[in-house]
């Protein structure tokens, strides 16, 4: 078999696997969300016997979905911005300064990710209670989310800070630029893709986070994942869960596509300034 043939075969296989991986769960979620309560979708039928938007309308009107959407979509961007601000100084130090143990420090920053989320959530909430932050639940969740996803933010921004070229900083300085002008002309263009990536990743992680939102937030604050949990875990209404899953996942898919576009626009030739 020629190399080109093997190559195209492999591409077809990868596309097929990806389609199955994505298309089947999505199709199932869409179909389940359309199941009409008048007639259940039993295992002997390929498609739901009656399809309608009843579940969508019902969830919208009779559950805390509206409230969950508002809290999820206000928690996530706030946590993303706070996470970005908290990660900046550490990433700057890790990306711009040479010091003994720098690589170890980078590794240590990633370490919290290996702890299972529920364990972190339980201990983190205990910490928040001790700090007295539990009284303002929204703030507590924002704080917890931004801290929890800090490893991602620090890692991404460290790489961005490493990409800032020293000669651009020096050139700006040589031409009389103030620290702020230096940041705008030398740092910001190199940091932009990293900043967008950090914001999006923390946003997506925060939207999907369940453990902390559940432990700290309930019963006052309902987010989409906690609502999803009650639909699936407590009541086990699969069509309702399907509606919530789609609401949760569709915006994330679009955000990931935007992220991909942003990453691609970070053209390395553009940042090098050399032809």
């Amino acid at each position: 078999m020629s190399y080109a043939r093997l190559n195209s075969l492999l591409i077809v296989m990868i596309v097929t696997v990806a389609l199955i991986w994505l298309a089947i769960p999505f199709t199932m979620a869409i179909l389940w969300s359309l199941v009409d309560p008048a007639e259940p979708w039993t295992a002997d039928k390929l498609l739901p016997p009656v399809m309608s938007f009843y579940r969508w309308v019902d969830m919208w009107e009779n559950s805390s979905l509206k409230y969950a959407l508002i809290s999820s979509y206000s928690l996530a961007p706030t946590a993303a911005i706070l996470g970005l601000c908290l990660a900046m100084p550490t990433a700057f130090a890790l990306g711009r300064f040479n010091f003994a143990g720098r690589e170890l420090a980078k590794l240590l920053c990633l370490l919290p990710l290996v702890v299972p989320p529920f364990i972190t959530a339980i201990f983190f909430s205990a910490l928040l209670f001790q700090l007295g932050l539990n009284t303002w639940r929204f703030g507590a969740i924002v704080f917890a989310h931004s801290i929890l996803f800090l490893p991602y933010a620090i890692r991404i921004l460290t790489v961005s800070f490493e990409n800032v070229r020293q000669d651009h900083i020096d050139a700006a300085r040589d031409l009389g630029a103030s620290p702020w002008a230096r940041f705008r002309v030398a740092y910001l263009p190199a940091l932009k893709p990293g900043i967008s990536a950090t914001l999006l990743i923390v946003f997506i992680q925060s939207i999907e986070e369940f453990a902390i939102a559940f432990i700290i937030g309930s019963p006052d604050i309902v987010t989409i994942p906690t609502l999803l949990y009650s639909a699936l875990g407590q009541d086990f209404v699969r069509p309702n869960a399907a509606v919530l899953s789609l609401i949760l996942v569709v915006p994330n898919v679009f955000l990931m596509l935007i992220l991909e576009r942003l990453m691609r626009s970070a053209n390395p030739a553009l940042s090098s300034g050399k032809g």
Binding site: H168, A171, D174, G176, A177, P189
Partner: peptide, 20 residues
């Protein structure tokens, strides 16, 4: 400091700002 000196430096790498 360099920003207050009456000197101008031409860099080996040119150091042109790529987005400008």
């Amino acid at each position: 400091p360099p920003e207050n000196r009456d000197t101008a430096l031409c860099f080996q790498s040119y150091a042109l700002f790529p987005h400008l």
